[in-house]
């Protein structure tokens, strides 16, 4: 029982990180149809920026802010310079974002090299509570709380504000939104910045949980992010949250029972979902 609780907490906290990573991916794809292969790189940049600023200032809050700012800047630059030129061309989008991924992953190696950079947990969250046999790591609870807060805010923004309404309308029918006199390009930029900032936030929060970061984590977690989005259904935030937690829990349990199969389990879940409902659990019918 105690092990089960521990694993569940670990799974939920990992799931929340996956949510931060993949919600942006899902939103960007849902609204703009852009499959962003550089998304994981932004995640990695967030991790690096956060870890560095945290190391310099000693304040984890500053680290988080730095990660979000860097993520937003990288996202905005990518969108303005490159991606905005190829809206509507799926093949070119994937090709270009792959190129951006290559360049970003190499650029980070100029100042930092390809070796690992150790990442620490903030002191206040280093300890853990013990209730009987159950050990609750404070940092994991912190991750779950942040994830829930972000998910709630994101859902509220999407459901309640005019901007969120525009974004949801844009997912449904971008042409109609434009016909109604809304500058959809601006909405695109906003969503791209938002998605990138979320991804970078995921990066800095994930870094202490990993213990160390390197330039490869971008592509590694991007792959998981893709699978989460495929399972949950492209463009659905609820689906992304659900499948993030599902994937987090599934990999946490299997990692305990049979560590070698942790990644394979996610792939198997994805295969099953694709066979039964190709558009994902919460996706709209197959196109």
């Amino acid at each position: 029982m105690d092990i089960f609780v521990n694993l569940t907490i670990a799974g939920l906290s990992t799931g929340m990180m996956y949510y931060l990573l993949s919600s942006g991916l899902s939103l960007i794809y849902g609204l703009m149809g852009v499959l962003n292969f550089a998304h994981g790189s932004v995640f990695m940049y967030g991790a690096y920026a956060g870890v560095l600023v945290f190391g310099l200032t000693g304040s984890f809050t500053f680290g988080i802010i730095a990660a979000i700012v860097v993520g937003a800047i990288v996202g905005y630059t990518m969108e303005r310079l490159v991606i905005s030129r190829v809206y509507g061309q799926h093949l070119a989008q994937i090709l270009l974002t792959t190129g951006l991924m290559l360049v970003l992953n190499e650029l980070i190696k100029i100042p930092f090299g390809s070796n690992i950079l150790p990442a620490f947990q903030p002191e206040a969250l280093q300890s853990s509570w013990q209730i009987g046999e159950i050990v609750i790591v404070k940092y994991r609870i912190f991750l779950i709380i942040i994830g829930l807060v972000v998910a709630t805010i994101l859902n509220a923004v999407m459901a309640k504000t005019k901007l969120g309404m525009t974004v949801r309308a844009g997912v449904q029918n971008p042409e109609m939104v434009q016909v109604l006199g809304i500058n959809i390009k601006k909405v695109f930029s906003f969503v791209f910045i938002l998605g990138s900032a979320l991804s970078a936030l995921g990066g800095i929060l994930m870094a202490p949980a990993l213990g160390a970061i390197n330039p490869e984590i971008g592509l590694m977690y991007q792959m998981t992010g893709f699978m989460v989005v495929v399972i949950g259904g492209m463009g659905s935030l609820t689906g992304t949250l659900f499948s993030s937690l599902l994937v987090g829990l599934a990999s946490s349990y299997t990692a305990y029972v049979y560590p070698d199969a942790a990644t394979a389990v996610i792939v198997i879940v994805m295969i099953v979902v694709l066979l039964i409902k190709p558009s994902g659990l919460f996706g709209k019918g197959a196109e």
């Binding site: 499959l35 699978m227 190709p278």
Partner: peptide, 9 residues
């Protein structure tokens, strides 16, 4: 079966 973009992922 779904979309060509899925093939990439």
């Amino acid at each position: 079966r779904v979309k060509n973009t899925y093939y990439a992922m």
